[in-house]
Amino acid sequence: MIPASFDYVAPTSVDEVVSTLAEHGDDAKVLAGGHSLLPLMKLRFAVPAMVVDIGRVEELRGVRDAGDHLAIGAGTTHHEIVHDPLVRQHCGLLAEATSMVGDAQVRHRGTIGGATAHGDSAGDLPAVVSALEGTFVAQGPGGRREIAAADFFQGYLETALAADEVLVEVRIPKHDGWGFAYEKFNRVAQAWAIVGVAALVRRENGSVAEARIGLTNMGAVPVRATASEEALAGADRTEDAIRAACQHAADGTSPPADLSAQPDYRQHLARVLSARAVARATG
């Protein structure tokens, strides 16, 4: 629980961050809230020679209305997002799910950028951003590029970010009028979700026009329950119809086994929780 020796810099602009990363390459690690990186360093699973603390980069913080979407600075804390009026108005799912991340202390330090760039599919936000079909904006020596959520998460603790890139923004399309729910199932409040389900539902003429379901901790990357999404399109807003559609929520998933759950139990939970989340989102 004592990290190996490392150097530390705390730049104040994104350009400085990028040039520092360019200089140190794979030896550098970006530090945001620190809730994932510091434990890994203390256990010596991560031994970066250079820690680049982005906590003082003001331009990375805050939520901006960008027309059809919200542009959320990667350094915006969970607490700020939960209480942000724009997020609550246009992306309620993100506010609800973020309010369940960790505990109050974690939410005051942890950031949306850190929670997604770490690429841990047991975290709540990757599945939520996937369901919201958000876009990640990365900046590297060659400038900025946009990466769709579907392409961003590539494997366990692996994202599309290159070693010389820093995540600067998460863009979330506005979902005005969509119903939403995040169902988080865990054994103690502070633990990671055994399974989490993020549901978004657009209603039309008394039935479900479109549904999106993002699954937390059901694979190496956040998973969309596409079979259920398809079955829900045009479905009645009845409990039976929703349940029937959500019987397919775990189709094609290969969830992990750990002390809290074996894969078959996770798949069962994904089906049950998807039905609950969709029912709540359908309202």
Partner: peptide, 12 residues
């Protein structure tokens, strides 16, 4: 670690 060994806290 206390990630794997679950000690309940007040919310639980």
């Amino acid at each position: 670690t206390l990630v794997d060994y679950l000690v309940p806290a007040a919310p639980d």
